[in-house]
């Protein structure tokens, strides 16, 4: 589960958003989009907790995968210092991702730093011939990333909360005006967005949750959430992807 990866590249792609490509044999075990890696940000004990970061792109031929993260706190800021050739300690791959199911017409909805795992998902779905439409929400134009990447896979709509780019408002302000019929949605973003999307769309879907984590593999009970049936789930091992209606949002 613990692997030492080599940093291939690191790039600042939007305001506080970084993209890092890592290489190592463990890449071949990354089967489903939506899984995450748990990264040790330094080799001393000043940061005792790892950082859970989702996998945004997987390249099996090169044994490389990409993580895309926001450097907003002490730990993720340290991550931005890594450069090509450096070694990095990760636990991987963790969690259950999105089922890649063959179906007609799919809506992919991401909010802010929830966007990254949806890129690998959209790639996979397109790979098996599923048509994907993408709705991505950001706070402002400076926060936008991956618009071109998603456009290359299908129709892509951007919403910004401040109206500085695309539709003014939230992802649901875009989805309400879509006229196509969709069979399923896949969403990742803040809980409030996941709830709004789940309520607004009368179709089945999958949501990916974010929560502060301790261990990342089911030991510490830090990242629990409530299931609709009254039981509890661990976001790290039972999720982070859940079926719409399975967990309380």
């Amino acid at each position: 589960m613990k692997n030492i990866m080599t940093v291939v590249s690191q790039e600042n792609i939007a305001d506080k958003i970084y993209e890092m490509v890592l290489e190592g044999d463990i890449t071949e075990s990354m089967k489903t989009p939506g899984q995450f890696v748990h990264i040790r940000v330094s080799d001393n004990t000043s940061n005792v907790l790892r950082r859970p970061i989702s996998i945004s792109d997987i390249n099996l031929e090169k044994s490389q995968f990409t993580i895309t993260y926001r450097a907003d706190g002490d730990g993720t800021k340290k991550l931005t210092k890594y450069k090509a050739g450096d070694s990095i300690d990760i636990l991987s791959p963790l969690g259950n991702g999105y089922p890649v199911e063959k179906s007609g017409n799919v809506l992919i909805i991401g909010g802010g730093i929830g966007v990254p795992p949806l890129y690998e998902l959209a790639k996979r779905l397109n790979g098996i011939g599923v048509k994907t439409t993408h709705v991505l929400g950001f706070n402002s134009s400076k926060d936008i990333f991956y618009e071109e990447k998603f456009k290359a896979l299908g129709e892509t709509f951007i919403a910004t909360a401040d109206g500085s780019y695309g539709t003014e408002g939230f992802v649901t302000d875009v989805t309400r005006n879509l006229t196509d019929d969709y069979d399923r949605f896949y969403a990742c973003g803040p809980k409030v967005m996941l709830k709004a999307v789940s309520d607004a769309l009368d179709i089945d879907g999958y949501v990916s949750l974010e929560e502060r984590m301790g261990c990342g593999f089911g030991v510490c009970y830090a990242c629990v959430c409530d299931r609709v049936d009254g039981t509890q789930a661990k976001v790290c091992t039972d999720g982070p992807v859940f079926k719409k209606g399975e967990v309380v949002l």
């Binding site: 000043s46 005792v48 502060r212 301790g214 510490c220 009970y221 830090a222 990242c223």
Partner: peptide, 23 residues
């Protein structure tokens, strides 16, 4: 016991806080 509400952990300088609540 179902424990406390989340967030239940927060990292601090060379340490961490937890309030799992004996789940």
């Amino acid at each position: 016991r179902s424990g406390n509400k989340t967030p239940r952990v927060a990292e601090t300088a060379s340490g961490m806080l937890n309030a799992i609540g004996l789940q």
